[in-house]
Simulated scan of single mutants.
Amino acid sequence: MSRRSTEQIETIFQQLDTLRTAVSALQCIEERHPGSLRGGQTVDDAGARDLSFKRLNEAITDMQEVLITLAEAAGDIAKL
């Protein structure tokens, strides 16, 4: 990968860290001010909300892992 590609991967990784922080902040807000979810399909509002935040964090982790794999494959970083 070129230096420019490496820099772009680093930028995306930082943005994902920022996104993770923002998701965590939103989760804290939601936990402090719980409300019921609309639609009535969910009987366990807190469980559904927790699962949603868990899924968001897993998606961020998945994207970071793919970026690391790309960088490793290109030889930009050593295999971890």
Rank of each mutant, 00 (worst) to 15 (best):
Asp50Gly: 00
Asp45Thr: 10
Ile60Val: 11
Gly75Trp: 06
Asp44Lys: 11
Arg55Leu: 02
Val23Ala: 15
Asp45Pro: 08
Gly47Arg: 13
Ile9Glu: 00
Lys54Leu: 12
Leu67Cys: 03
Ile12Ser: 06
Ala73Lys: 05
Lys54His: 14
Ser24Glu: 14
Arg20Glu: 02
Cys28Tyr: 05
Leu80Trp: 03
Gln27Thr: 01
Ala48Lys: 12
Leu70Ser: 05
Thr69Met: 07
Thr6Ala: 02
His33Gln: 07
Ser5Phe: 05
Glu30Asn: 10
Arg20His: 03
Glu7Thr: 05
Ala71Thr: 03
Asn57Ile: 04
Glu7Ile: 00
Ser2Leu: 01
Ala48Ile: 00
Ser52Asp: 02
Lys79Ser: 04
Leu16Arg: 08
Thr21Asn: 14
Met1His: 02
Lys54Cys: 10
Glu65Ser: 13
Ile77Asp: 01
Phe13Cys: 00
Glu72Leu: 02
Arg38Lys: 11
Ser5Val: 05
Thr42Trp: 13
Glu58Gln: 11
Thr18Gly: 10
Lys54Phe: 09
Gly40Cys: 10
Pro34Met: 06
Arg38Leu: 07
Asp62Trp: 03
Ala25Lys: 15
Arg4Asn: 01
Phe13Tyr: 12
Thr61Lys: 11
Phe13Glu: 13
Leu19Gln: 02
Glu65Pro: 01
Ala73Thr: 07
Ala78Gly: 06
Gly47Ser: 08
Leu70Asp: 00
Ala46Cys: 04
Val23Gly: 13
His33Arg: 11
Gly47Tyr: 14
Asp62Thr: 06
Gln14Gly: 06
Glu30Thr: 14
Leu56Cys: 08
Ala78Ser: 10
Gln27Pro: 00
Asp45Ile: 04
Ala78Cys: 01
Asp45Leu: 08
Gly35Tyr: 08
Ala48His: 15
Ala59Asp: 14
Gly39Glu: 13
Thr42Glu: 10
Thr18Trp: 12
Gln41Ala: 15
Val43Thr: 09
Gly75Val: 12
Thr18Arg: 14
Ala74Pro: 00
Leu70Val: 08
Thr69Val: 03
Ala46Ser: 13
Leu37Glu: 04
Ile12Tyr: 11
Arg55Val: 00
Leu16Asn: 00
Gln8Trp: 07
Lys79Glu: 08
Glu31Ser: 12
Ser52Ala: 15
Thr18Tyr: 11
Ile9Cys: 05
Leu80Arg: 10
Leu19Ser: 07
Cys28Val: 12
Cys28Leu: 15
Arg3Ser: 06
Arg32Glu: 05
Lys54Asp: 06
His33Asn: 06
Leu80Pro: 03
Leu80Thr: 04
Glu72His: 04
Ala78His: 03
Gly35Arg: 15
Ile12His: 04
Leu51Glu: 08
Glu65Met: 11
Thr61Glu: 13
Ala78Trp: 01
Val43His: 10
Gln64Leu: 10
Met1Pro: 08
Ala22Met: 14
Asp62Ile: 04
Ala25Tyr: 15
Ile77Val: 14
Met1Cys: 12
Thr69Asn: 08
Leu80Gly: 09
Arg38Ile: 06
Asp44Gly: 00
Asn57Pro: 02
Asp45Lys: 11
Ile68Thr: 10
Asp50Tyr: 12
Ala22Tyr: 13
Gln8His: 08
Ser5Pro: 00
Glu58Cys: 03
Val43Pro: 00
Thr42Lys: 12
Thr61Tyr: 04
Gln14His: 08
